[in-house]
Amino acid sequence: MAATVNPTQVGYIFRLLYVALVALVLVHLFGTIGYMVLTDGKYSWFDCFYMTFITVATIGFGEIIDMSSNQPARILTVVIGILGAGNLSMLFSVVTVALLETDLNGTLQRKRMEKAIKKLKGHYILCGFGRVGRNIAHELEATHRHYVAVDEDTLRLNDYKERNPGFLYLHGDASDDDVLLAADIADAKGVFAVTGDDSRNLMIVLTAKQLKPEVRVVARCQETRNIEKMRKAGADAIVSPDFTGGMRIASAMIRPHVVSFLDEMLKSEKNLRVEEVPVPAGFIPKPISALQLRSANYVLLAVRERNGEWQFNPDEDFLIKPGFMLIAMASPVGRMEIERSLIDAAA
């Protein structure tokens, strides 16, 4: 949980740090000049400075200035020791407080997180980390997909981070260009606009499409009257929780076994999902039988052609071409097996 830092308090701490450093310099100047005067210049400036330094630092090395018969020099040593010890104690205390109050650990953590985000390719940007956003996050994690969460609620993000160490997030307004750029939208595969505010989601859609027109954006819409606005803003898909919830309730009544099957599929230890895998552009057309798409980790259900037509349960002679979309019930491992098969065939 992140602490809120008062800028006035931080400024005061840094002023104390400045005072402590200046005082340390003055103690060394006072001691150096004092030894030079009290020894009538018998020792060099460096010897006088060195004597002052080892006294302040309490290193305990042997004295290089003979004070066996020089009472004033001994008194000066006592004074320097007292001033130096007090000054060092103050300096260390201020430095410790400065490190804690300026959240050095948090700064380093953010730097590491920004570097990790820059390494992502084909990830998703999850704008809004409320109840809906967290459910999306669970689904992305279950299917082994990378994502970056963006939210203005620091406590909500840090709470999830404590339970999920690998969690990547940014604190800020997702409708801000700089925040989406920091989330590496240039390499992102899609953007979720799922805050609880339709106007905010609309701005996220506009910003995302302005920065990367080809990125897929799925938006949450509370009010059905705003769906058309979302669509005009560029959202590729719009989901209304109220409408979807109503359909789910109706399905639970009129087709309970289908709903039960889907629920069990989501609860399965294998994380089975109905997945879609695009056929890459460089793919050489081949019949399904040539791809040997058989595995215990997936079942091929259908193929969507480029003209939008569907081929359900395609036979072995069906020709797979670039631009087609394979629909399969698969685990995350099964999805990756299909992707590798298509890439190997395109190579």
Rank of each mutant, 00 (worst) to 15 (best):
A2R: 10
R15Q: 05
Y18T: 05
H28F: 11
H28E: 00
G34K: 06
G34S: 01
Y35L: 05
L38H: 01
L38I: 12
T39L: 04
Y43T: 01
S44V: 03
F49G: 07
Y50W: 12
I54R: 09
V56Q: 00
T58Q: 08
D66T: 11
T77L: 07
L83Q: 03
L83T: 01
L83S: 06
L91Y: 07
F92Y: 13
V94Q: 10
V95Y: 07
L100D: 14
T102P: 08
D103Q: 14
N105P: 05
N105D: 08
R112G: 00
R112V: 00
M113I: 14
I117V: 08
I117P: 07
R131N: 12
V132L: 13
I136M: 05
H138Q: 12
H138V: 07
E139V: 11
L140K: 12
L140D: 10
H144S: 13
R145P: 01
T154W: 08
L157P: 00
Y160H: 14
Y160M: 06
N164R: 04
P165M: 13
G166V: 04
L168N: 04
L170M: 03
L170T: 15
G172H: 00
L180I: 06
L181H: 10
A182I: 10
A183Q: 04
A186Q: 09
A188K: 10
G190Q: 03
T195I: 03
R200A: 13
M203S: 15
V205R: 04
A208W: 05
K212W: 08
V215D: 02
R216T: 14
V217E: 10
Q222L: 06
E223P: 05
T224S: 09
N226E: 04
K229C: 00
R231N: 08
R231A: 07
A235E: 09
D236M: 05
A237S: 02
A237F: 08
G245F: 07
R248G: 12
A250F: 08
A252Y: 05
M253P: 00
R255L: 14
V259K: 04
K267L: 15
E269T: 09
E269C: 03
L272K: 06
P278R: 06
I284W: 02
P287R: 10
L291N: 06
Q292I: 08
R294M: 05
Y298L: 14
L300W: 11
V303F: 10
E305C: 06
G308S: 05
W310H: 10
E316A: 15
D317C: 07
K321C: 11
G323F: 04
L326P: 12
I338M: 15
I338N: 03
E339Q: 09
R340S: 11
A347L: 06
